[in-house]
Design a protein around this nucleic acid. Structure first.
Length: 200
DNA sequence: CACAGGATCGTT
DNA sequence: ACGATCCTGTGT
């Protein structure tokens, strides 16, 4: 019999404030083809008013998907080698998104190991670049909704027992107010978290 | 057209 | 602590 990973999340799930959707994504399942991951760490990024967000300087070709209706992917290329996967939230015009920072493998371990170069332990999937690499997500996925057959899917998954939160990683360039905003969320007690140091 | 920098990762 | 590596936004 086929393993069931739950139903797909409805559009209404995404059409809420980003700081509400982000913690609600913990424990959800992210699937693309044969690989299914359980989300263990995320970060919320706000719209134009958030100086840490790609939306801070208005709409550009790269961040255009952020301005569209929630329930789709925003993928960008970083440091010349890493792809970052975000979940766009809110109605069109809000430009809010959640960065998927870490996961644990639910299905497709063999392919994940292959894509990640045989790395073992938490280093397999703790960090946003690693998540995209494991899923096989690249720039061609940006703007794609989570409702397309054969595409990226977000499923109900299993809720976490507890949650940790802390400031976002790598946003020292932002205003003090935005830098200190506790918009990073992680499943409590899991090894599948990047830089656990700054989480409480 | 040229340039500086980045929501990172893996090694030193 | 640092280098890889190239897309992107900004300015000329």
């Amino acid at each position: 019999m086929l393993a069931s990973f739950g139903k797909g999340l409805p559009l209404s799930f995404y059409l809420r404030p980003v700081a509400e959707v982000a913690p609600d994504l913990l424990g959800r399942h992210l699937r693309l083809g044969p690989v299914t991951l359980r989300i263990t760490e995320v970060e919320a990024y706000g719209g134009q008013g958030d100086s840490a967000s790609h939306a801070r300087s208005g709409r550009t070709p790269r961040n255009a998907p952020m301005w569209e209706e929630g329930g789709r992917a925003y993928v960008y290329f970083c440091y010349g080698m890493h792809h970052m996967l975000n979940v766009v939230t809110g109605p069109a015009g809000q430009a809010e998104a959640v960065l998927i920072r870490a996961c644990e493998v639910v299905a497709g371990l063999e392919l994940v190991l292959q894509r990640r170069g045989g790395v073992k332990g938490p280093a397999l999937l703790t960090g946003p670049g690693k998540v995209a690499q494991a899923l096989g997500v690249d720039l061609t996925r940006t703007r794609e909704t989570f409702f397309e057959p054969g595409g990226l899917e977000l499923l109900e998954g299993s809720p976490p027992d507890g949650m940790l939160r802390g400031p976002r990683v790598g946003v020292d360039f932002a205003s003090p107010e935005d830098r200190d905003r506790p918009w990073r969320f992680a499943v409590a007690g899991t090894r599948w978290v990047s830089q656990p140091r700054t989480l409480g």
